[in-house]
Every structure is written in C-alpha cells, then in structure tokens.
Amino acid sequence: MHLFVQSLGFGVVTASIIAIGAMGFTLQFGLTNVLNLSFGSLMTVGGFVAYLAESAGINVWIGLVLGGLAGAASTLIIGKTIFKVYARRGTRLFEMVMVTLALALIIEYAVDAISRDQIYQLTFPQGTTFNVGAISITAAQLAIVIIGIGIFIALEVMLKMTRLGKALRAMAVDPSLARSCGIPTDRIINTTWLVSGFLCGVAGVVFVINALSVDSYTGTLFLPSVLAAAILGGVGSPGGALVASLVLGVVTELVAAAGGSAYSTVAAFGVLVVVLLSRPSGVLTAASRKVELTV
C-alpha cells in the first residue's frame, strides 16, 4: 500500500513533465494542424541547453528559461521556414507528418553528432525532501509540479481572458474567417510557435532536472507519452492535456511500482488504445472534418 501511495506521488511528478510538453504540443497542433513529431527532438535540444547552462555554472532556473527560449527560437524558425515552404507547396496533412518526422530524425542525429553520442550526467541539487503522509517528494520535484500547474493556469488565462487567446481560438476554428475579420493571423501563428516551442524546451529541461541525465535520444523516448497525452486530451485543449497527462503519469508509475517497469509505458499506451477503440468524439470525428494547415 505504502508503495502505491508513494508511486502516486511519482505519478504526479511524471504527469507534470508530460503535461508541460503535451500542453505545448496541443496548442501548436490545435492551431496549425501540423502534427509535429520533431517535438521530441526539440525537447532534447532544451535538455542539452540546460546541461550546458549547468556546466557553465548558471543557475538552474535561468537554465530553465534558456532551455525554453532555445525551444521557442528553433520552433519559430522551423515553423517559418520549413513548415511554411511545404504548406505553400500544397503538402497535405499526412505528408506534413512525414516532413516533421524527417526533421525529427535530422535534429536527433545532429544533436547526436554534436554530443559525440555520449550520455551526460547532471548534478542539479534536488533540495530537501518533504514528506506528506506516505508520499515523499523532493523540492525539485515539487517545483516541477508547481511549474506544470503554473503553466496550465497561465495558458488558460491567456486563451480565455486575453484578446490574443480569443484570436487564437477563432483561428483554430476557421482561419480564413478569422483573417477576414481582421485578425493578424501571421502574428498569432508566430506567437503560437513561440509559446509552444517555449513549453517544448521547458518540458525538456524539467525532464532532465528529474532524470539527471541527457542524451540525444532523451526527447524521442519521451515523445510517446507527450503524443498520447495530447491525442487523449483532445486537440487544442490544455485542460484535456493536463487531465490526460495525469492519467498517463499515474498509470505509468503504478505499473512500474507493481513490478512491471518494462511495461509502464505500454500501460499508458493501453489507455490511449482503449480510448481509440471506444470512439470518443474528440478523437475520431476529426476524420470527417475538413482541416487545413495554418502555418
């Protein structure tokens, strides 16, 4: 029993890491309709920036922001150059997903080449350990949870209460109508690349803070969880992504605690399969709806 309560605590931490990535992913995907499989590789880039910042003696929180900025900048550049070129040429949705995967491959192995195919260890101080009942959680893990919740609240406020959020939601529903209503769609898209890229980089950094090691495969390994959470939570819904991440994170850690650490991701994936099979409207009606690339 004690083990399961403890793993519940780990589950919440894992969920927060997944959630930060999934919220970024779902925001990007919801607006642009690019199912960006290079998201994982860009998370690795964020993680490596955090590693470089740490080895340069920079404070971990500044490293977090730097990792986020690296993610934001690279996502914006990719969105404005590569994705835009393909969209202009009439690349269809399913071809775009192949473009993003090719990009993922390139980024992953570029990082691999630069990092000389090594695993790098980090020594972030984990801080004091708090004990809440049977759950013990380190200060660093607590900070990750708080960051996750903070990002969720900030995103919700941005989407629901600001003019930018209103414009963003309008564009997600109908980009051409939004354009003719005078919404500066280009600027909104740029903002989306920046915000989602920032979250991508931050997700990479918090993953590294928790795992304390980084290599070129880190983000790719973590991509299934992020994708599953984003698909499960419904496109463009940070709240959905958060709840889905919580489910995935807790299931992952519970299965690991039950002795099947090899199968923990499978269990999380099982949740997605069940949802795919039971046809929730959020995931499956998308097939008949006309969707278009907005980049």
Binding site: L35, M96, V97, L227, V283, L284, A286
Partner: peptide, 10 residues
C-alpha cells in the same frame, strides 16, 4: 480506425 491519417501515423 477512421481517424485522421496523421493521427494514425503518430
């Protein structure tokens, strides 16, 4: 399942 082809790929 009848989901978007990019979902299938993912």
């Amino acid at each position: 399942r009848r989901i978007r082809r990019d979902y299938q790929a993912a």
